[in-house]
């Protein structure tokens, strides 16, 4: 039981970060049919922006702010204007290819011009351990989970409870009707790119203290976000949240499940993908998705 609790909380904390990345992923998909193969690198980069700011003498809170703003400029504005806009008319494949290129560029750029080494990252929350039900946690772990969930709730409120949020939903569901209703669809699309950048930056700042900042981190994060988005339901923010948590938890229980099934724990990485294939074959709309529902 203690082990179960230990793994569940660890899985949820990582899963909440996957959820942030997966939400951004689905948002881009819904509003602009962009499948962002660089999503993992989007989560990798902001931590390095914060590190650069700190190297220049900024205290951590300022550095974190700079990371978020920097992400909005680079991963939101620039990405939209330089990569997505010129390509959107050419159909999805060139755009997919281009995002693969963006991923390579960010990854190799950080490696060449910052460092190939994993970088320690300031601990924002106290690492003080405490015991509960026989399992050991740290406050930092709980705080990461809390912050991630708070950000997700804030986003939900924004999408459902504000005028701009509802306009974004309308634009994603039916751009033509939205235009007729006088909504500036392009602006709404632009907002989703900014939101994606903010989510990526938050995920980056939350994950870097425990996983460190490393140029190659995006490979695993991107795959997790991708799987989470599909498992949850590709056209649902709710789906991305569920998917993220499921992937995070599944990964932590994988060694136990595998050894129970008589398989080597070396196949741990296969479990989320196995989930993905099952979902595709038997429930293509995702765990919580329904075929016809609001998009965001």
């Amino acid at each position: 039981m203690a082990d179960f609790l230990q793994l569940l909380v660890a899985g949820l904390a990582t899963g909440a970060i996957y959820a942030l990345a997966a939400i951004g992923f689905t948002l881009l998909w819904q509003t602009s049919q962009t499948i962002n193969f660089a999503q993992g690198e989007f989560v990798m980069l902001p931590a390095f922006l914060a590190l650069i700011a700190m190297n220049l003498g900024a205290p951590f809170p300022l550095a974190a702010l700079i990371a978020i703003l920097g992400a909005m400029v680079i991963l939101g504005l620039t990405f939209k204007l330089a990569i997505v806009d010129p390509l959107i008319k050419s159909g999805p494949l060139p755009l997919v290819i281009s995002t693969i290129g963006v991923g390579l560029l960010l990854k190799d750029g950080v490696k060449e011009f910052y460092s190939a080494e994993a970088q320690p990252f300031p601990k924002v929350f106290p690492e003080t351990p405490f015991s509960l039900g026989g399992a050991n946690f740290t406050y930092a772990q709980i705080a990461v989970l809390g912050v991630a969930l708070a950000v997700i709730m804030a986003l939900n409120w924004f999408l459902a409870g504000t005028r701009t949020g509802r306009q974004m939903q309308a634009s994603a569901q039916n751009p033509t009707v939205a235009r007729i209703l006088g909504i500036n669809v392009n602006r709404m699309i632009f907002y989703t790119f900014l939101i994606n950048a903010i989510l990526a930056a938050v995920a980056s700042l939350l994950i870097a203290p425990s996983q460190f900042a490393k140029f190659s981190q995006g490979e695993q994060l991107g795959l997790a976000a991708f799987v989470a988005a599909i498992v949850g339901g590709f056209n649902q923010v709710r789906g991305a949240i569920v998917g993220g948590l499921v992937v995070g938890v599944a990964d932590n229980f994988a060694p136990t499940l595998l050894s129970a099934a008589g398989l080597s724990s070396a196949y741990r990485q296969a479990l989320p993908l196995f989930l993905l294939v099952l979902i595709i074959l038997f429930r293509p709309q995702g765990l919580v998705g329904r075929k016809e529902e609001r998009a965001i």
Partner: peptide, 21 residues
């Protein structure tokens, strides 16, 4: 020294896609 193959390749891919998909 910093002109790594992947960097150049990535930029080539992005530019090519933007101007000639």
């Amino acid at each position: 020294a910093h002109l790594s193959y992947l960097l150049v390749y990535a930029i080539l891919v992005m530019v090519l896609m933007a101007f000639c998909p």
